[in-house]
Write a protein that binds this DNA or RNA. Structure first.
Lengths: 119, 119
DNA sequence: TAGCTTGTTCGATGTTCACCGAATATCGAA
DNA sequence: TTCGATATTCGGTGAACATCGAACAAGCTA
């Protein structure tokens, strides 16, 4: 598991490492976050409805970013996250789709939801 | 990560949990083991050539088994391992293939090899 | 400028993990 | 039954992880 500061740029496509990606996806809450991002829409930090403290949410988003699964963009005091779907697909074809399918079957991370818009 | 005694039966197909599977595959050595088992052949414990102590190898095989990725069969003093490919496929279609493809690209777990036969 | 909102970072805690060597169990062979 | 081979389990260690609340920084807004 790679630890990355929020401010550092996320890993480039050819630097994505399989075991880091899988480690990032081995937590139900993070899978839930990825599922909510799967439609390609950008989501604001405060839109996520999760049963953990906001510092913990920040940490999980940091982990996803460190593994290269997501990217984060700051706008004012807000932070927007999106899934790097094309990048993952380019590096590891079919992997993300297979995981998302499996997550749907298992209903993994169903304790994660998103509000309609920024709070 | 589920901890399982070797003697307990591995999880049934419908009990496989995605995050357990991904956690088991988030370690390079375990990915290497899975790659060596990918052709469907059964392998003996002592066939594996890995850069860790045998107690550590035992632990990793236990982890794979606990996640439902492999099954183990004892014969005499020997222990034979096989990949539960059909079971994984039935539960999580395309997942294992996608991971194996990605592992080939990344050459993950290349420090794992197998000898020609049981020592 | 003062204050509010938003999100990150810090410090701390308990859990889990990878790893090793030693001890133990199990089986086959002498 | 004694010995050697094989594999699992035990005890311990250091690193990594999930989690929280508090402190902090950065940006709006009044």
């Amino acid at each position: 598991m790679v630890h990355v500061r929020h401010r550092e740029p996320p890993p480039a496509v050819d630097q994505l490492r399989l075991t880091d990606v899988l480690a990032a996806l081995s937590d139900p809450l993070r899978v839930g976050l990825v599922r909510q991002l799967a439609n390609g829409e950008e989501r604001c930090f405060s839109e996520f409805n999760v049963p953990v403290a906001k510092s913990t949410l920040s940490h999980h988003l940091c982990t996803l970013r460190g593994a290269g699964l997501t990217d984060t963009r700051g706008e004012g005091t807000r932070s927007y996250v999106r899934l790097r779907r094309e990048d993952i697909e380019a590096r590891f074809p079919n992997l993300l789709d297979a995981v998302l399918d499996a997550a749907d079957r298992d209903d993994v991370g169903n304790h994660v939801s998103v509000s309609s818009g920024p709070a």
